[in-house]
Every structure is written in structure tokens, then in C-alpha cells.
Simulated assay, not measured.
Amino acid sequence: MGVERDRSRQRDETLPWRKWIKTARWQKLRWFVLVRDLFTCQKCKRIETDTSQLVADHKTPHRGDERLFWDDENLQCLCKPCHDVVKQAEEQASVHQRGVWY
């Protein structure tokens, strides 16, 4: 548990954009996306009533680009399983192609 907390703290310090997720602006944008997409995962099409199990996911990874981060057209509603498994696998594949993570 402490290891994950330390990793999260380190990412917060090295990736300034992570602070944006903790803002009221992000919470408002996230809610807008969930409502717009009717609480429906855009990958598996499951409707999820527990909003803690939904993610406002960036279609195109922003990698710190504010324009992409805040663009509601670049966001989609995903359920946590699709985000945590499918989307993360896609991003990891991208890292291997580029050879870097940024």
C-alpha cells in the first residue's frame, strides 16, 4: 500500500499535469463527459450507474498538452475495466513503439 502511495506521489511531483485531475475544473469536465455519454462505456457499451466506476478517458493521450487535456471532444466515458485493461494495454504498446514514456 505504501509503495503505491509513494509511486503516486512521485508521479505527482514529476508530471505537473497530474495536479489538473484534482481540480474542480476537471471534476466539472469529467461530469460533463459522463452525462454526455449517458454513463455508457464507449468501448464495451455497458451502462454504469456507479460513477466511481467510470473514467473520463483521453482518446488521444495528452502527454501534458493542456489543449488536449481540457478538450471535451478528446474525452470519452470508459468503465474502469476497459480503461484499466484495454486502454492501458494500448498505451503500453505505444510506449514500446516510441521507446519512451512522456
Score class of each variant (00 low, 15 high):
residue 90 E to S: 14
residue 66 E to V: 06
residue 8 S to E: 14
residue 74 N to W: 05
residue 48 E to Q: 05
residue 77 C to V: 13
residue 39 F to I: 01
residue 47 I to Y: 04
residue 76 Q to L: 08
residue 3 V to R: 11
residue 77 C to I: 10
residue 8 S to P: 05
residue 6 D to V: 10
residue 36 R to V: 10
residue 23 T to N: 07
residue 92 Q to A: 14
residue 95 V to G: 04
residue 81 P to K: 09
residue 30 R to K: 09
residue 76 Q to C: 03
residue 99 G to C: 06
residue 63 R to T: 07
residue 89 A to Q: 10
residue 83 H to A: 02
residue 26 W to L: 11
residue 55 V to W: 00
residue 97 Q to K: 14
residue 40 T to A: 11
residue 47 I to G: 00
residue 21 I to G: 05
residue 43 K to N: 05
residue 90 E to T: 15
residue 65 D to H: 10
residue 51 T to R: 12
residue 72 D to M: 10
residue 77 C to L: 04
residue 92 Q to I: 15
residue 28 K to F: 07
residue 59 K to M: 01
residue 27 Q to F: 11
residue 47 I to D: 00
residue 57 D to R: 03
residue 13 E to H: 08
residue 72 D to S: 08
residue 60 T to L: 06
residue 72 D to Y: 15
residue 65 D to E: 09
residue 25 R to C: 12
residue 98 R to W: 07
residue 70 W to S: 09
residue 7 R to D: 01
residue 46 R to S: 14
residue 16 P to S: 10
residue 10 Q to K: 15
residue 9 R to Y: 14
residue 7 R to C: 09
residue 92 Q to K: 15
residue 59 K to A: 04
residue 43 K to L: 05
residue 52 S to E: 03
residue 94 S to I: 04
residue 78 L to C: 10
residue 66 E to I: 08
residue 29 L to P: 00
residue 88 Q to M: 13
residue 87 K to I: 09
residue 85 V to M: 11
residue 54 L to C: 00
residue 2 G to P: 06
residue 55 V to Y: 01
residue 80 K to F: 09
